[in-house]
Design a protein around this nucleic acid. Sequence first.
DNA 1: CGACACCTTGAAGAGGTTCAAGAAATGTGG
DNA 2: CCACATTTCTTGAACCTCTTCAAGGTGTCG
Lengths: 271, 271
Amino acid sequence: MSASPRIPIVPAFQADESSGTLPEAAQAPVHMTPQAFKVACSNCNLRELCMPVGLNDEQLKRIDDVVAVRRKIKRGTTLFRNGEQFTSLFAIRTGFFKTCVATEDGRDQVTGFQMAGEIIGLDGIVNDHHTCDAVALEDAEVCVMPFDRIEELSREVNALQHHVHKILSREIVREHGVMLLLGSMRAEERLAAFLLNLVQRLHARGFSQSELVLRMTREEIGSYLGLKLETVSRTFSKFVEEGIVEVKQRHVRILSPDALKRIVNSQQACH
Amino acid sequence: MSASPRIPIVPAFQADESSGTLPEAAQAPVHMTPQAFKVACSNCNLRELCMPVGLNDEQLKRIDDVVAVRRKIKRGTTLFRNGEQFTSLFAIRTGFFKTCVATEDGRDQVTGFQMAGEIIGLDGIVNDHHTCDAVALEDAEVCVMPFDRIEELSREVNALQHHVHKILSREIVREHGVMLLLGSMRAEERLAAFLLNLVQRLHARGFSQSELVLRMTREEIGSYLGLKLETVSRTFSKFVEEGIVEVKQRHVRILSPDALKRIVNSQQACH
DNA sequence: CGACACCTTGAAGAGGTTCAAGAAATGTGG
DNA sequence: CCACATTTCTTGAACCTCTTCAAGGTGTCG
Protein backbone atom coordinates (compact mmCIF):
# COMPACT_ATOMS: atom_id res chain seq x y z
CA MET A 1 0.00 0.00 0.00
CA SER A 2 1.24 3.44 -0.82
CA ALA A 3 1.49 6.29 1.58
CA SER A 4 -1.61 7.83 0.14
CA PRO A 5 -4.36 5.43 1.17
CA ARG A 6 -3.13 5.80 4.75
CA ILE A 7 -4.12 9.39 4.76
CA PRO A 8 -7.78 9.55 5.58
CA ILE A 9 -9.95 11.19 3.01
CA VAL A 10 -11.25 14.41 4.40
CA PRO A 11 -14.67 15.53 3.27
CA ALA A 12 -14.57 17.57 0.09
CA PHE A 13 -16.05 21.02 0.05
CA GLN A 14 -16.43 23.80 -2.42
CA ALA A 15 -13.46 25.88 -3.28
CA ASP A 16 -12.37 28.12 -6.08
CA GLU A 17 -10.12 26.02 -8.21
CA SER A 18 -8.82 28.75 -10.45
CA SER A 19 -6.17 29.97 -8.04
CA GLY A 20 -3.58 27.84 -6.36
CA THR A 21 -4.97 28.59 -2.96
CA LEU A 22 -8.30 28.40 -1.29
CA PRO A 23 -10.56 31.42 -1.23
CA GLU A 24 -10.71 33.57 1.85
CA ALA A 25 -13.08 32.13 4.35
CA ALA A 26 -14.15 34.99 6.52
CA GLN A 27 -13.86 38.18 4.55
CA ALA A 28 -12.18 40.71 6.80
CA PRO A 29 -11.74 44.34 5.83
CA VAL A 30 -8.40 44.79 4.16
CA HIS A 31 -7.45 47.84 6.21
CA MET A 32 -7.35 45.90 9.48
CA THR A 33 -4.00 45.06 11.06
CA PRO A 34 -3.09 41.37 11.46
CA GLN A 35 -3.77 41.58 15.18
CA ALA A 36 -7.22 42.86 14.49
CA PHE A 37 -8.21 39.81 12.47
CA LYS A 38 -10.48 38.18 14.95
CA VAL A 39 -10.67 34.70 13.72
CA ALA A 40 -13.91 32.80 13.52
CA CYS A 41 -13.40 29.09 13.13
CA SER A 42 -17.13 28.75 13.49
CA ASN A 43 -17.66 29.97 9.97
CA CYS A 44 -14.33 29.12 8.37
CA ASN A 45 -14.76 26.91 5.36
CA LEU A 46 -11.73 24.91 6.42
CA ARG A 47 -13.46 23.88 9.58
CA GLU A 48 -14.15 20.36 8.47
CA LEU A 49 -10.47 19.96 7.75
CA CYS A 50 -8.93 21.23 10.94
CA MET A 51 -11.64 21.20 13.60
CA PRO A 52 -13.60 18.46 15.33
CA VAL A 53 -17.09 17.86 14.03
CA GLY A 54 -20.33 17.72 15.94
CA LEU A 55 -19.75 20.61 18.27
CA ASN A 56 -22.59 22.71 19.55
CA ASP A 57 -22.63 26.48 19.14
CA GLU A 58 -21.26 27.20 22.56
CA GLN A 59 -18.31 24.88 22.07
CA LEU A 60 -17.63 26.30 18.64
CA LYS A 61 -17.50 29.78 20.05
CA ARG A 62 -15.03 28.73 22.68
CA ILE A 63 -12.80 27.17 20.09
CA ASP A 64 -12.83 30.46 18.23
CA ASP A 65 -10.99 31.82 21.22
CA VAL A 66 -8.17 29.33 20.82
CA VAL A 67 -7.08 30.92 17.60
CA ALA A 68 -5.28 34.02 18.77
CA VAL A 69 -4.38 35.69 15.51
CA ARG A 70 -3.61 34.99 11.93
CA ARG A 71 -0.21 35.41 10.46
CA LYS A 72 0.88 35.90 6.87
CA ILE A 73 4.07 34.24 5.69
CA LYS A 74 5.76 35.36 2.50
CA ARG A 75 6.95 32.76 0.08
CA GLY A 76 10.43 31.55 0.91
CA THR A 77 10.32 32.64 4.53
CA THR A 78 9.96 30.41 7.55
CA LEU A 79 7.02 30.04 9.89
CA PHE A 80 9.34 28.55 12.47
CA ARG A 81 12.84 27.16 12.57
CA ASN A 82 14.67 24.34 14.22
CA GLY A 83 15.65 25.43 17.72
CA GLU A 84 13.03 28.12 18.13
CA GLN A 85 10.80 28.16 21.16
CA PHE A 86 7.54 26.30 20.65
CA THR A 87 4.43 28.12 21.70
CA SER A 88 1.75 27.44 19.13
CA LEU A 89 0.41 25.08 16.58
CA PHE A 90 -0.48 26.54 13.21
CA ALA A 91 -3.46 25.74 11.05
CA ILE A 92 -2.79 26.53 7.41
CA ARG A 93 -5.50 28.70 5.91
CA THR A 94 -3.93 29.33 2.54
CA GLY A 95 -0.62 28.50 0.96
CA PHE A 96 1.72 25.59 0.94
CA PHE A 97 4.57 24.62 3.26
CA LYS A 98 7.42 22.20 3.48
CA THR A 99 8.92 21.00 6.74
CA CYS A 100 12.50 19.81 6.86
CA VAL A 101 15.02 18.56 9.34
CA ALA A 102 18.74 19.13 8.99
CA THR A 103 21.93 17.52 10.20
CA GLU A 104 24.90 19.39 11.57
CA ASP A 105 26.86 18.39 8.52
CA GLY A 106 24.52 20.20 6.18
CA ARG A 107 22.33 17.47 4.81
CA ASP A 108 18.68 18.04 5.03
CA GLN A 109 15.54 16.08 4.53
CA VAL A 110 12.09 17.32 3.64
CA THR A 111 9.75 15.55 6.04
CA GLY A 112 6.50 16.70 4.52
CA PHE A 113 4.50 19.11 2.42
CA GLN A 114 1.49 20.73 4.05
CA MET A 115 -1.50 22.46 2.55
CA ALA A 116 -4.67 24.29 3.63
CA GLY A 117 -6.45 22.75 6.58
CA GLU A 118 -3.40 20.90 7.87
CA ILE A 119 -1.74 21.54 11.20
CA ILE A 120 1.98 22.14 11.61
CA GLY A 121 4.24 22.55 14.58
CA LEU A 122 3.52 19.23 16.28
CA ASP A 123 7.21 18.45 16.48
CA GLY A 124 7.70 21.25 18.98
CA ILE A 125 5.54 19.86 21.77
CA VAL A 126 7.95 17.30 23.14
CA ASN A 127 10.83 19.61 24.01
CA ASP A 128 9.23 23.04 23.90
CA HIS A 129 11.40 23.77 20.90
CA HIS A 130 10.87 23.14 17.25
CA THR A 131 13.04 20.46 15.72
CA CYS A 132 12.42 21.30 12.10
CA ASP A 133 11.96 24.25 9.78
CA ALA A 134 8.62 25.14 8.23
CA VAL A 135 9.10 27.09 5.00
CA ALA A 136 6.31 28.65 2.96
CA LEU A 137 6.54 27.52 -0.67
CA GLU A 138 4.02 30.18 -1.62
CA ASP A 139 2.56 33.16 0.18
CA ALA A 140 0.58 31.73 3.02
CA GLU A 141 -1.63 32.53 5.93
CA VAL A 142 -1.93 30.53 9.12
CA CYS A 143 -4.08 30.59 12.22
CA VAL A 144 -1.90 30.79 15.32
CA MET A 145 -3.15 28.54 18.09
CA PRO A 146 -1.22 28.89 21.35
CA PHE A 147 -0.71 25.39 22.62
CA ASP A 148 -1.36 26.12 26.26
CA ARG A 149 -4.78 27.37 25.30
CA ILE A 150 -5.39 24.27 23.23
CA GLU A 151 -4.52 22.18 26.27
CA GLU A 152 -6.69 24.29 28.51
CA LEU A 153 -9.73 24.10 26.31
CA SER A 154 -9.31 20.47 25.42
CA ARG A 155 -9.66 19.65 29.10
CA GLU A 156 -13.16 21.00 28.88
CA VAL A 157 -14.27 20.08 25.39
CA ASN A 158 -13.87 16.35 24.99
CA ALA A 159 -14.27 16.46 21.24
CA LEU A 160 -11.38 18.90 20.97
CA GLN A 161 -9.22 16.75 23.20
CA HIS A 162 -9.83 13.72 21.06
CA HIS A 163 -9.32 15.76 17.93
CA VAL A 164 -5.87 16.86 19.08
CA HIS A 165 -4.96 13.26 19.78
CA LYS A 166 -6.15 12.26 16.35
CA ILE A 167 -4.12 14.96 14.63
CA LEU A 168 -0.99 13.76 16.38
CA SER A 169 -1.75 10.13 15.66
CA ARG A 170 -2.53 10.89 12.03
CA GLU A 171 0.88 12.44 11.62
CA ILE A 172 2.50 9.33 13.07
CA VAL A 173 0.58 7.13 10.64
CA ARG A 174 1.46 9.40 7.74
CA GLU A 175 5.12 9.10 8.63
CA HIS A 176 4.81 5.32 8.73
CA GLY A 177 3.72 5.58 5.12
CA VAL A 178 6.72 7.68 4.25
CA MET A 179 9.03 5.21 5.96
CA LEU A 180 7.51 2.44 3.90
CA LEU A 181 8.06 4.49 0.79
CA LEU A 182 11.64 5.37 1.63
CA GLY A 183 12.51 1.94 2.89
CA SER A 184 11.09 -0.30 0.24
CA MET A 185 10.10 1.48 -2.95
CA ARG A 186 12.03 2.18 -6.10
CA ALA A 187 12.16 5.61 -7.74
CA GLU A 188 9.13 5.18 -10.00
CA GLU A 189 6.99 3.85 -7.20
CA ARG A 190 7.99 6.72 -4.95
CA LEU A 191 7.14 9.38 -7.47
CA ALA A 192 3.89 7.67 -8.41
CA ALA A 193 2.86 7.42 -4.75
CA PHE A 194 3.84 11.03 -4.24
CA LEU A 195 1.72 12.27 -7.13
CA LEU A 196 -1.26 10.19 -6.11
CA ASN A 197 -1.05 11.44 -2.57
CA LEU A 198 -0.78 15.08 -3.60
CA VAL A 199 -3.64 14.93 -6.04
CA GLN A 200 -5.80 13.07 -3.56
CA ARG A 201 -5.29 15.75 -0.93
CA LEU A 202 -5.89 18.51 -3.44
CA HIS A 203 -9.03 16.82 -4.65
CA ALA A 204 -10.31 16.63 -1.09
CA ARG A 205 -9.95 20.41 -1.09
CA GLY A 206 -12.02 20.85 -4.19
CA PHE A 207 -9.28 20.90 -6.79
CA SER A 208 -8.96 18.74 -9.84
CA GLN A 209 -8.38 15.03 -9.64
CA SER A 210 -6.06 15.05 -12.58
CA GLU A 211 -4.27 18.36 -12.68
CA LEU A 212 -1.92 19.90 -10.18
CA VAL A 213 0.68 22.58 -9.85
CA LEU A 214 3.74 21.54 -7.93
CA ARG A 215 4.69 24.16 -5.42
CA MET A 216 8.11 22.66 -4.81
CA THR A 217 11.27 22.16 -6.85
CA ARG A 218 12.53 18.85 -8.15
CA GLU A 219 15.18 19.02 -5.50
CA GLU A 220 12.59 19.32 -2.73
CA ILE A 221 10.60 16.44 -4.18
CA GLY A 222 13.81 14.46 -4.33
CA SER A 223 14.68 15.24 -0.75
CA TYR A 224 11.25 14.11 0.39
CA LEU A 225 11.44 10.92 -1.65
CA GLY A 226 15.05 10.10 -0.90
CA LEU A 227 16.16 10.69 -4.49
CA LYS A 228 18.39 13.14 -6.31
CA LEU A 229 16.72 15.85 -8.33
CA GLU A 230 18.05 14.33 -11.56
CA THR A 231 16.32 11.07 -10.74
CA VAL A 232 13.06 12.89 -10.10
CA SER A 233 13.39 14.66 -13.42
CA ARG A 234 14.23 11.48 -15.30
CA THR A 235 11.35 9.64 -13.70
CA PHE A 236 8.96 12.41 -14.71
CA SER A 237 10.29 12.12 -18.25
CA LYS A 238 9.76 8.40 -18.19
CA PHE A 239 6.15 8.80 -17.09
CA VAL A 240 5.67 11.29 -19.91
CA GLU A 241 7.14 8.88 -22.48
CA GLU A 242 4.78 6.20 -21.25
CA GLY A 243 1.82 8.54 -21.58
CA ILE A 244 0.99 8.40 -17.90
CA VAL A 245 1.33 12.12 -17.24
CA GLU A 246 1.89 15.41 -18.99
CA VAL A 247 4.53 17.60 -17.43
CA LYS A 248 5.18 21.22 -18.25
CA GLN A 249 7.59 22.44 -15.60
CA ARG A 250 5.59 22.42 -12.42
CA HIS A 251 2.28 21.84 -14.09
CA VAL A 252 1.33 18.18 -14.05
CA ARG A 253 -1.66 16.51 -15.64
CA ILE A 254 -2.32 12.93 -14.72
CA LEU A 255 -3.54 11.04 -17.78
CA SER A 256 -3.73 7.62 -16.20
CA PRO A 257 -4.15 7.46 -12.46
CA ASP A 258 -4.59 3.71 -12.80
CA ALA A 259 -1.14 3.37 -14.30
CA LEU A 260 0.27 5.25 -11.33
CA LYS A 261 -1.59 2.97 -8.94
CA ARG A 262 -0.27 -0.06 -10.74
CA ILE A 263 3.26 1.27 -10.46
CA VAL A 264 2.88 1.77 -6.72
CA ASN A 265 1.63 -1.75 -6.23
CA SER A 266 4.04 -3.39 -8.62
CA GLN A 267 6.56 -4.62 -6.08
CA GLN A 268 9.26 -5.76 -8.46
CA ALA A 269 11.70 -5.63 -5.63
CA CYS A 270 10.92 -8.27 -3.04
CA HIS A 271 12.53 -11.61 -2.08
CA MET B 1 22.84 14.42 12.67
CA SER B 2 21.78 10.86 13.25
CA ALA B 3 18.42 9.73 14.39
CA SER B 4 19.81 9.11 17.82
CA PRO B 5 20.50 12.59 19.16
CA ARG B 6 16.93 13.49 18.35
CA ILE B 7 15.70 11.00 20.86
CA PRO B 8 15.71 12.67 24.22
CA ILE B 9 17.87 11.08 26.84
CA VAL B 10 15.69 9.63 29.51
CA PRO B 11 17.10 9.62 33.03
CA ALA B 12 19.12 6.53 33.79
CA PHE B 13 18.15 4.35 36.68
CA GLN B 14 19.33 1.13 38.25
CA ALA B 15 18.48 -2.09 36.55
CA ASP B 16 19.79 -5.60 36.50
CA GLU B 17 22.02 -5.81 33.49
CA SER B 18 22.61 -9.51 33.54
CA SER B 19 19.38 -10.46 31.83
CA GLY B 20 18.08 -9.06 28.61
CA THR B 21 15.12 -7.52 30.31
CA LEU B 22 14.50 -5.32 33.25
CA PRO B 23 13.74 -6.83 36.64
CA GLU B 24 10.19 -7.08 37.82
CA ALA B 25 9.10 -3.86 39.39
CA ALA B 26 6.25 -4.77 41.63
CA GLN B 27 6.64 -8.37 42.66
CA ALA B 28 3.27 -9.98 42.31
CA PRO B 29 2.57 -13.50 43.49
CA VAL B 30 3.09 -15.89 40.60
CA HIS B 31 -0.16 -17.75 41.19
CA MET B 32 -2.28 -14.72 40.38
CA THR B 33 -4.13 -14.58 37.10
CA PRO B 34 -3.27 -11.80 34.64
CA GLN B 35 -6.43 -9.95 35.54
CA ALA B 36 -5.48 -10.01 39.15
CA PHE B 37 -2.23 -8.11 38.60
CA LYS B 38 -3.20 -4.82 40.10
CA VAL B 39 -0.63 -2.52 38.70
CA ALA B 40 1.03 0.16 40.75
CA CYS B 41 2.72 2.75 38.60
CA SER B 42 3.43 4.64 41.78
CA ASN B 43 6.20 2.25 42.67
CA CYS B 44 7.14 0.90 39.25
CA ASN B 45 10.78 1.45 38.51
CA LEU B 46 9.92 2.37 34.95
CA ARG B 47 7.91 5.30 36.15
CA GLU B 48 10.46 7.87 35.09
CA LEU B 49 10.35 6.43 31.62
CA CYS B 50 6.66 6.27 30.96
CA MET B 51 4.97 8.58 33.45
CA PRO B 52 5.00 12.31 33.97
CA VAL B 53 7.22 13.57 36.76
CA GLY B 54 6.35 15.84 39.64
CA LEU B 55 3.01 14.36 40.54
CA ASN B 56 1.73 14.38 44.07
CA ASP B 57 0.62 11.21 45.82
CA GLU B 58 -3.03 11.67 45.04
CA GLN B 59 -2.40 12.15 41.34
CA LEU B 60 -0.08 9.17 41.25
CA LYS B 61 -2.73 6.98 42.78
CA ARG B 62 -5.24 8.07 40.21
CA ILE B 63 -2.85 7.25 37.42
CA ASP B 64 -2.49 3.78 38.90
CA ASP B 65 -6.12 3.35 37.99
CA VAL B 66 -5.46 4.04 34.33
CA VAL B 67 -3.49 0.86 33.97
CA ALA B 68 -6.15 -1.78 33.82
CA VAL B 69 -4.14 -4.96 33.67
CA ARG B 70 -0.87 -6.34 32.53
CA ARG B 71 -0.55 -8.68 29.65
CA LYS B 72 2.19 -11.14 28.76
CA ILE B 73 3.15 -11.62 25.14
CA LYS B 74 5.14 -14.62 24.04
CA ARG B 75 8.05 -14.14 21.70
CA GLY B 76 6.93 -14.17 18.09
CA THR B 77 3.31 -13.34 18.84
CA THR B 78 1.59 -10.04 18.25
CA LEU B 79 0.37 -7.52 20.77
CA PHE B 80 -1.88 -6.05 18.11
CA ARG B 81 -2.28 -6.28 14.37
CA ASN B 82 -3.09 -3.99 11.51
CA GLY B 83 -6.85 -3.63 11.27
CA GLU B 84 -7.63 -4.57 14.85
CA GLN B 85 -9.81 -2.34 16.96
CA PHE B 86 -7.85 0.20 18.98
CA THR B 87 -8.76 0.46 22.62
CA SER B 88 -5.58 0.88 24.59
CA LEU B 89 -2.06 2.12 24.61
CA PHE B 90 0.58 -0.23 25.94
CA ALA B 91 3.53 0.57 28.14
CA ILE B 92 6.27 -1.98 27.78
CA ARG B 93 7.40 -3.34 31.10
CA THR B 94 9.76 -6.00 29.89
CA GLY B 95 10.73 -7.38 26.53
CA PHE B 96 11.31 -5.98 23.12
CA PHE B 97 8.97 -5.27 20.22
CA LYS B 98 9.05 -4.37 16.59
CA THR B 99 6.28 -2.52 14.83
CA CYS B 100 5.77 -2.90 11.12
CA VAL B 101 3.46 -1.75 8.39
CA ALA B 102 2.65 -3.82 5.34
CA THR B 103 1.46 -3.25 1.81
CA GLU B 104 -1.20 -5.29 0.09
CA ASP B 105 1.44 -6.66 -2.24
CA GLY B 106 3.36 -8.26 0.59
CA ARG B 107 6.15 -5.82 1.23
CA ASP B 108 6.62 -4.76 4.76
CA GLN B 109 8.58 -2.19 6.62
CA VAL B 110 9.70 -2.23 10.22
CA THR B 111 8.83 1.20 11.58
CA GLY B 112 10.49 0.87 14.94
CA PHE B 113 11.90 -1.24 17.75
CA GLN B 114 10.53 -0.61 21.20
CA MET B 115 11.89 -1.48 24.61
CA ALA B 116 10.95 -1.20 28.28
CA GLY B 117 9.37 2.08 29.26
CA GLU B 118 8.24 2.93 25.76
CA ILE B 119 4.63 3.32 24.69
CA ILE B 120 3.15 1.56 21.68
CA GLY B 121 -0.21 1.71 19.98
CA LEU B 122 -0.24 5.44 19.16
CA ASP B 123 -1.00 4.69 15.53
CA GLY B 124 -4.44 3.41 16.46
CA ILE B 125 -5.84 6.65 17.86
CA VAL B 126 -6.64 8.35 14.59
CA ASN B 127 -9.00 5.79 13.12
CA ASP B 128 -9.85 3.63 16.10
CA HIS B 129 -8.01 0.81 14.40
CA HIS B 130 -4.38 -0.15 14.45
CA THR B 131 -2.50 0.43 11.24
CA CYS B 132 0.56 -1.64 12.05
CA ASP B 133 1.56 -4.88 13.73
CA ALA B 134 3.39 -5.00 17.04
CA VAL B 135 5.37 -8.22 17.40
CA ALA B 136 7.25 -9.30 20.51
CA LEU B 137 10.84 -10.15 19.66
CA GLU B 138 11.24 -11.71 23.07
CA ASP B 139 8.82 -12.69 25.81
CA ALA B 140 7.33 -9.46 26.99
CA GLU B 141 4.96 -7.89 29.42
CA VAL B 142 2.98 -4.71 28.90
CA CYS B 143 0.72 -2.50 30.95
CA VAL B 144 -2.62 -2.11 29.21
CA MET B 145 -3.91 1.46 29.39
CA PRO B 146 -7.41 1.92 27.97
CA PHE B 147 -7.27 5.09 25.95
CA ASP B 148 -10.65 6.43 27.02
CA ARG B 149 -9.46 6.33 30.60
CA ILE B 150 -6.26 8.10 29.63
CA GLU B 151 -8.32 10.83 28.02
CA GLU B 152 -10.64 11.00 30.98
CA LEU B 153 -7.90 11.35 33.53
CA SER B 154 -5.78 13.67 31.45
CA ARG B 155 -8.64 16.16 31.52
CA GLU B 156 -8.15 16.34 35.24
CA VAL B 157 -4.42 15.91 35.68
CA ASN B 158 -2.69 18.57 33.60
CA ALA B 159 0.68 16.89 33.87
CA LEU B 160 -0.72 13.70 32.42
CA GLN B 161 -2.37 15.58 29.60
CA HIS B 162 0.87 17.25 28.66
CA HIS B 163 2.72 13.99 29.03
CA VAL B 164 0.45 12.29 26.52
CA HIS B 165 1.02 15.12 24.09
CA LYS B 166 4.74 14.81 24.56
CA ILE B 167 4.72 11.08 23.94
CA LEU B 168 2.89 11.60 20.67
CA SER B 169 5.13 14.47 19.64
CA ARG B 170 8.25 12.51 20.56
CA GLU B 171 7.20 9.73 18.24
CA ILE B 172 6.75 12.24 15.43
CA VAL B 173 10.22 13.63 16.03
CA ARG B 174 11.70 10.15 16.18
CA GLU B 175 10.17 9.35 12.84
CA HIS B 176 11.63 12.53 11.39
CA GLY B 177 15.00 11.11 12.34
CA VAL B 178 14.23 7.85 10.61
CA MET B 179 13.12 9.69 7.50
CA LEU B 180 16.40 11.56 7.48
CA LEU B 181 18.24 8.28 7.82
CA LEU B 182 16.28 6.55 5.08
CA GLY B 183 16.30 9.53 2.80
CA SER B 184 19.88 10.65 2.93
CA MET B 185 22.25 8.16 4.50
CA ARG B 186 24.31 5.39 3.00
CA ALA B 187 24.39 1.87 4.41
CA GLU B 188 27.29 2.37 6.80
CA GLU B 189 25.83 5.55 8.19
CA ARG B 190 22.47 3.90 8.70
CA LEU B 191 23.87 0.96 10.59
CA ALA B 192 26.14 3.18 12.67
CA ALA B 193 23.25 5.45 13.58
CA PHE B 194 21.14 2.41 14.39
CA LEU B 195 23.73 0.93 16.75
CA LEU B 196 24.35 4.24 18.48
CA ASN B 197 20.65 4.77 18.98
CA LEU B 198 20.07 1.29 20.36
CA VAL B 199 22.98 1.41 22.76
CA GLN B 200 22.03 4.89 23.92
CA ARG B 201 18.53 3.77 24.77
CA LEU B 202 19.79 0.65 26.48
CA HIS B 203 22.28 2.68 28.46
CA ALA B 204 19.48 4.97 29.63
CA ARG B 205 17.91 1.81 31.04
CA GLY B 206 20.99 0.84 32.98
CA PHE B 207 22.62 -1.45 30.46
CA SER B 208 26.12 -1.27 29.09
CA GLN B 209 27.26 1.56 26.88
CA SER B 210 29.32 -0.73 24.73
CA GLU B 211 27.67 -4.11 24.65
CA LEU B 212 24.30 -5.10 23.34
CA VAL B 213 22.34 -8.12 22.28
CA LEU B 214 20.30 -7.62 19.15
CA ARG B 215 16.82 -8.94 19.60
CA MET B 216 16.05 -8.80 15.89
CA THR B 217 17.32 -10.57 12.79
CA ARG B 218 19.48 -9.03 10.09
CA GLU B 219 16.42 -8.98 7.92
CA GLU B 220 14.47 -6.95 10.46
CA ILE B 221 17.35 -4.53 10.86
CA GLY B 222 17.50 -4.28 7.10
CA SER B 223 13.81 -3.61 6.81
CA TYR B 224 14.06 -0.84 9.38
CA LEU B 225 17.08 0.69 7.69
CA GLY B 226 15.86 0.28 4.13
CA LEU B 227 18.56 -2.26 3.29
CA LYS B 228 18.69 -5.91 2.34
CA LEU B 229 19.82 -8.36 4.96
CA GLU B 230 22.98 -9.12 3.02
CA THR B 231 23.94 -5.47 3.09
CA VAL B 232 23.42 -5.36 6.83
CA SER B 233 25.59 -8.42 7.23
CA ARG B 234 28.32 -7.06 4.98
CA THR B 235 28.30 -3.73 6.77
CA PHE B 236 28.68 -5.46 10.11
CA SER B 237 31.61 -7.38 8.66
CA LYS B 238 33.17 -4.16 7.43
CA PHE B 239 32.87 -2.58 10.86
CA VAL B 240 34.52 -5.67 12.34
CA GLU B 241 37.40 -5.50 9.85
CA GLU B 242 37.93 -1.88 10.75
CA GLY B 243 38.01 -2.71 14.44
CA ILE B 244 34.99 -0.61 15.25
CA VAL B 245 32.86 -3.41 16.66
CA GLU B 246 33.00 -7.05 17.59
CA VAL B 247 30.11 -9.13 16.33
CA LYS B 248 29.27 -12.65 17.37
CA GLN B 249 25.89 -13.35 15.86
CA ARG B 250 23.51 -11.10 17.76
CA HIS B 251 26.00 -10.10 20.37
CA VAL B 252 27.65 -6.80 19.53
CA ARG B 253 30.42 -5.01 21.38
CA ILE B 254 31.17 -1.48 20.35
CA LEU B 255 34.90 -0.90 20.48
CA SER B 256 34.90 2.62 19.13
CA PRO B 257 31.72 4.63 19.56
CA ASP B 258 33.61 7.64 18.22
CA ALA B 259 34.27 5.87 14.95
CA LEU B 260 30.55 5.17 14.66
CA LYS B 261 29.76 8.81 15.36
CA ARG B 262 32.24 9.89 12.73
CA ILE B 263 30.63 7.57 10.20
CA VAL B 264 27.21 9.03 10.92
CA ASN B 265 28.46 12.56 10.46
CA SER B 266 30.67 11.82 7.48
CA GLN B 267 28.30 12.90 4.75
CA GLN B 268 30.37 11.68 1.82
CA ALA B 269 27.29 11.92 -0.28
CA CYS B 270 26.42 15.56 -0.78
CA HIS B 271 27.59 17.87 -3.53
C1' DC C 1 20.85 -35.34 15.75
C1' DG C 2 18.46 -33.61 12.05
C1' DA C 3 15.60 -29.83 10.36
C1' DC C 4 15.20 -25.20 10.14
C1' DA C 5 16.10 -20.46 10.58
C1' DC C 6 19.67 -17.31 10.44
C1' DC C 7 24.00 -15.42 8.96
C1' DT C 8 28.05 -14.75 5.90
C1' DT C 9 30.42 -14.20 1.66
C1' DG C 10 31.18 -14.05 -3.45
C1' DA C 11 30.11 -12.57 -8.16
C1' DA C 12 27.24 -10.37 -11.40
C1' DG C 13 23.90 -6.92 -12.34
C1' DA C 14 20.66 -3.00 -11.83
C1' DG C 15 19.19 1.32 -10.18
C1' DG C 16 20.43 5.54 -8.76
C1' DT C 17 24.11 9.00 -8.25
C1' DT C 18 27.54 12.09 -9.82
C1' DC C 19 29.42 15.25 -12.92
C1' DA C 20 28.73 18.11 -16.70
C1' DA C 21 26.53 20.94 -20.11
C1' DG C 22 22.85 23.23 -22.03
C1' DA C 23 17.92 24.78 -22.15
C1' DA C 24 13.99 26.83 -20.11
C1' DA C 25 11.78 29.62 -16.82
C1' DT C 26 11.81 33.13 -13.31
C1' DG C 27 13.05 37.23 -11.00
C1' DT C 28 15.43 41.85 -10.79
C1' DG C 29 16.91 46.28 -11.72
C1' DG C 30 17.43 49.87 -14.76
C1' DC D 1 9.15 46.50 -20.32
C1' DC D 2 13.30 44.53 -21.65
C1' DA D 3 17.94 42.58 -20.72
C1' DC D 4 20.55 40.10 -17.73
C1' DA D 5 21.45 37.16 -13.84
C1' DT D 6 19.90 33.38 -11.41
C1' DT D 7 17.45 29.51 -10.47
C1' DT D 8 15.40 25.47 -12.08
C1' DC D 9 14.97 21.69 -15.11
C1' DT D 10 16.52 18.22 -18.53
C1' DT D 11 19.54 14.92 -20.52
C1' DG D 12 23.87 12.18 -21.32
C1' DA D 13 27.73 9.24 -19.79
C1' DA D 14 30.52 7.09 -16.38
C1' DC D 15 30.58 5.36 -11.97
C1' DC D 16 29.32 3.38 -7.58
C1' DT D 17 26.51 1.50 -4.07
C1' DC D 18 23.42 -1.69 -3.05
C1' DT D 19 20.78 -5.63 -4.66
C1' DT D 20 20.17 -10.12 -6.46
C1' DC D 21 21.25 -14.78 -6.83
C1' DA D 22 23.74 -18.48 -5.08
C1' DA D 23 26.17 -21.44 -1.96
C1' DG D 24 27.92 -22.72 2.29
C1' DG D 25 28.41 -22.05 7.28
C1' DT D 26 26.63 -21.47 11.97
C1' DG D 27 23.44 -21.77 15.57
C1' DT D 28 19.18 -23.40 17.67
C1' DC D 29 15.29 -26.14 19.00
C1' DG D 30 12.32 -29.94 19.07
